Amino acid sequence: MRPEDAGWAGALREVAERQRAELDLQLPDWPVYGLADSVESGWLAGWSRQDGTTVAAEIGYGLRVDDTWLTVETQPRAGVLFHSLDWVLALRFAADGRDYPVPGVLPAASDQDLPEAPRSHPVEVTVDARPTSAQVQRVDGYAAWRVVLDQVVVTVTGRGISTLPALVRLTDLGSYASRRGEALAALAAVPRPQAQPLTGPDETEPLWAHHGLLAMTIAGRNENATRLVSNRPFGQLAADWGPRWDAAIRRQCQLRDQGVADAREAVTAMVAQVGDLQERARWWQRAELRQRAVGEVVWVTATGEQNVPSAAAQRAWAIQREAGLDAWQDWADELSAR
């Protein structure tokens, strides 16, 4: 379902409740931590499973839309992947639509030892009523603490938090799980700006919506590739992501006299094909070939005409991607030989 569909928020809560019930049946056999003085406000914010086993549990305090919030994630010490404190903070920045202001490549994750934390410093926190050594890293209003205990590693992240409150081992996740639905409902109820329908020069540039959508998705893939190289989490989707998709689907309906479902399928296939070429075609970096390929894919999608040199390659790609990529290479070789 999509956010604009009727009942989206309710369906989201139903999925969350079903997942919560599944977690209740398979509680981890390692301790989970939360804030000692906030028993009535914490909620089960998330968890991860690996091969059917829970490998992380996260307790939230406040919502990400609040000025101040905090999450406590617990992971067993063995057999899981640990991200660096830099990466953890970069993920929080990305969730808020901000770039992480620390330059360079971030330390790599590890499933053996805890990743390096070159920008952290030692601090003492209270865990189970005992002073405990930890590391803390602060960047522009955000903070991340990491505590290594006998059985688990606890990573706490927050915004607007100056001092980490005391942590305590939780004896019952039931109340935290029961508040999950309330928290998700509160998030769903937060007013969001209403996106205006995207319009363009239909009469003079009838394919503007298709080209605009592809320009956005191509740029997004380039940005994600850059983030992968520097080991940074992906950022938020572009603000006009939804309107761009809606505009392309609407124009596809108009240009091909298709229903919404068929138009969405056609536009999705268009984006997927161009994405495959962007990621795997050897000739993609050549601007003249890239621009021509995009134009021909848009033309076939939006008009249904097969009167372009790459039509056979596009048909082959729709049946079998590897064969399609080979056919696209033949297309590029033929154009280059002229």
Rank of each mutant, 00 (worst) to 15 (best):
Asn231Cys: 08
Thr301Lys: 11
Pro197Ile: 03
His211Asn: 12
Ala129Gly: 00
Thr68Leu: 11
Arg290Lys: 08
Trp47Ile: 04
Gly295His: 05
Arg64Cys: 04
Leu198Gly: 06
Arg244Trp: 02
Asp99Lys: 08
Ala247Gln: 07
Tyr176Leu: 07
Asp29Gln: 12
Asp111Ala: 14
Ala239Arg: 13
Gly324Arg: 00
Asp326Gln: 14
Tyr33Glu: 06
Val15Thr: 13
Ser41His: 08
Met216Ser: 13
Ser230His: 11
Leu335Lys: 10
Ala143Asp: 00
Tyr61Thr: 00
Phe93Val: 08
Ser84Trp: 01
Ala239Asn: 04
Val308Trp: 08
Gln320Arg: 13
Val271Gln: 08
Ala327Lys: 08
Val88Leu: 03
Tyr142Asn: 01
Gln112Gly: 14
Ala166Thr: 04
Gly212Leu: 08
Thr68His: 10
Leu12Glu: 14
Thr54Asn: 01
Arg286Val: 10
Asp202Gln: 13
Asn222Arg: 14
Ile161Lys: 08
Asn224Phe: 06
Ala332Trp: 03
Ala36His: 02
Glu279Arg: 14
Pro201Asp: 12
Ala332Leu: 01
Leu277Trp: 10
Val127Thr: 02
Ile161Cys: 03
Ala129Met: 09
Val294His: 03
Arg286Gly: 09
Pro103Lys: 09
Ala209Gly: 06
Pro191Arg: 06
Glu322Ile: 12
Phe82Leu: 07
Asp202Met: 09
Thr68Ala: 14
Glu334Tyr: 01
Leu114Ser: 09
Glu116Val: 12
Leu170Met: 00
Arg77Ala: 13
Val298Gly: 09
Gln151Asn: 12
Ala186Phe: 00
Ala332Phe: 01
Ala129Trp: 01
Ala209Ile: 10
Asp326Met: 12
Ala95Cys: 06
Thr53Tyr: 07
Gln306His: 11
Leu27Val: 10
Asn224Asp: 10
Ala109Tyr: 02
Val294Gly: 01
Ser162Arg: 11
Ala117Asn: 04
Ala293Glu: 04
Ala16Gly: 13
Asp5Ile: 06
Val274Cys: 02
Val127Gly: 05
Gln135Pro: 06
Asp128Thr: 11
Pro122Glu: 10
Gly141Asn: 08
Thr126Arg: 11
Ala57Gly: 10
Pro31Ile: 07
Asp113Cys: 02
Glu203Thr: 14
Phe234Gly: 05
Pro193Asn: 08
Pro101Glu: 02
Gly295Lys: 04
Arg282His: 12
Val154Tyr: 03
Ala311His: 04
